[in-house]
């Protein structure tokens, strides 16, 4: 069933390795700006739940990186589909939709993991080192699983590279700012909190932050991310058929 996923994954990894020297600085720009502008300048004297704002911000930025970089696999897939026509090579090969999706999702998660490490290293440069324990990485990887699966599924539905930009504008950017990255949801009115609880990133940010602060974990956050991830993964598998004209 999953035979052939290594080919899809290896292809993405070769390209990633070849571009890594450019990608690492690119992955650093946004987190660096947020750390400087919000963490260092604006939030210097702000305390959130007993932690400095910089400490509060860093796990949020890690969650955001895991989302944005996992979702970025959609862009790679669309370049392969619309520009290089490589999707046809995968579709003409004796592999299942499951194998294809697994390879792409794992590639998205690997990309997210590397970008997350860049964020944590930047945090360390600002003197913020939290606990990066197994629960931290579990939440991080579950979040990247959700968004890589969603990305693969949506990439099968878009008709052009321009459509992909729209998805980023309507899904990723709002979630990045509203998913508990920059501010605690408790600051919002009850209806706002309930609304934002519907976003997977909110649960990821909560779980990653709690793990980083070595606070008690809410297993419901992990469970929810796992369920949403599985739903998105199935959506991606079904969507591969959609990409066939």
């Amino acid at each position: 069933m999953i035979k052939g996923w290594t080919a899809v994954y290896l292809r993405e990894m070769i390209i990633l390795k070849r571009r890594l020297a450019k990608l690492i600085p690119a992955w650093s720009v946004s987190p660096l700006l947020y750390l400087v502008a919000f963490g260092y300048a604006v939030g210097r004297h702000v305390n959130v739940g007993g932690h400095s704002y910089m400490e509060f911000l860093l796990p949020g930025l890690a969650a955001m990186a895991s989302m944005t970089q996992a979702f970025a696999i959609a862009g790679e897939i669309n370049i392969a589909r619309f520009y290089w026509h490589i999707f046809d090579e995968f579709q003409a090969a004796p592999i299942s939709n499951l194998a294809y999706v697994l390879g792409e999702v794992l590639a998205g998660m690997t990309r997210a993991l590397l970008a997350g490490c860049v964020v944590l290293l930047l945090g360390a440069l600002f003197g913020v080192v939290l606990s990066y324990n197994p629960l931290f990485w579990a939440a991080f990887l579950l979040n990247s699983f959700v968004f890589a699966s969603l990305a693969v599924g949506l990439a099968m539905h878009v008709k052009s590279h321009a459509d992909q930009t729209l998805l980023n504008n309507f899904i990723i950017t709002p979630m990045a700012f509203l998913g508990g990255t920059f501010f605690p949801l408790s600051q919002l009115p009850a209806w706002g909190q309930r609304l934002l609880e519907a976003l997977p990133l909110t649960h990821a940010a909560k779980a990653i932050r709690a793990a980083a602060f070595v606070e008690p974990a809410h297993m419901t956050d992990y469970l929810l991310l796992a369920i949403v991830g599985c739903v998105c993964f199935v959506f991606a598998i079904v969507s591969v058929n959609k990409a066939k004209s």
Binding site: G4, T6, A7, L10, I14, E89, A93, P94
Partner: peptide, 12 residues
């Protein structure tokens, strides 16, 4: 050769 490698892996 990487193109051929990926094709070979896709064909198990």
């Amino acid at each position: 050769e990487e193109n051929l490698l990926i094709h070979g892996l896709l064909h198990h």
